[in-house]
Amino acid sequence: MKALITGIGWVTPAGCGQGRQTEEQPLQPGALQIPTRKQIFPKIDRRFGRLDDLSRIGLAAVTFCLRDAGIEDWQQKRPLGIVAASRYGCLQTDLEYLETLIPQQGKLASPNLFAYTLPNCFLGEAALRFGLTGNSMIINRQDSGYLTALKTGLEELTWSAQPGVLAGIVDLAPAAELARQDDLPGSLFLLLEKASRTERGSYGELELQADALFFNTDRVVNLSQLVANCLKGKKFPAL
């Protein structure tokens, strides 16, 4: 199973970014700043203010990834899928929703917050903004290397007619009692595509053999190493 990595975008404690504009690997622990609308979209966007924080960072990372790949703008819907791995999912939104439920025994329960108590809702937000009609799901699996979404994304590509899949991670900082040392707060997506769009080039080829990932034939140990190798060695045609 092989695919080209054609875009990378993120929101992490290092800030917001996209692969073609930097060589610094952005996945790191630390405090996460939730991006403002202006940092992501140049135009006024009424929907953005209604999103929960998980959706904001996930949507932002998807946006930067598609922008990096040169396919943010669209006229017709396209069958691109999204696979996002998350350890904590929408736990923070669950807590915020519960705070509206407990007082007055449910009378003040917030419908807007409840709508985001399913972590896949931000995938719907990304899908409608960018016309993405492929499969979309959140996955939870024990994985210290943060590679599960990439493996699942490659399988999705191979098993379906989708020409591309956005695969990545999304997590807010968890409640202190649940936090782990290897947490990577933020969101980062890679666009995996079956075929090359030659005008933009790619970062290289990602391959899944058995349960092991290889980037340009080198074994991938974890997501940070993969992204570092993508950013370090990138060479793109002049546009």
Binding site: K77, P79, A115, C121, L123, G124, E125, A127, L128, F130, G131, L132, T133, G134, N135, S136
Partner: peptide, 10 residues
């Protein structure tokens, strides 16, 4: 098969 509407969240 699976597909997204790309229409609305809820």
């Amino acid at each position: 098969g699976a597909a997204n509407d790309a229409h609305h969240v809820t």
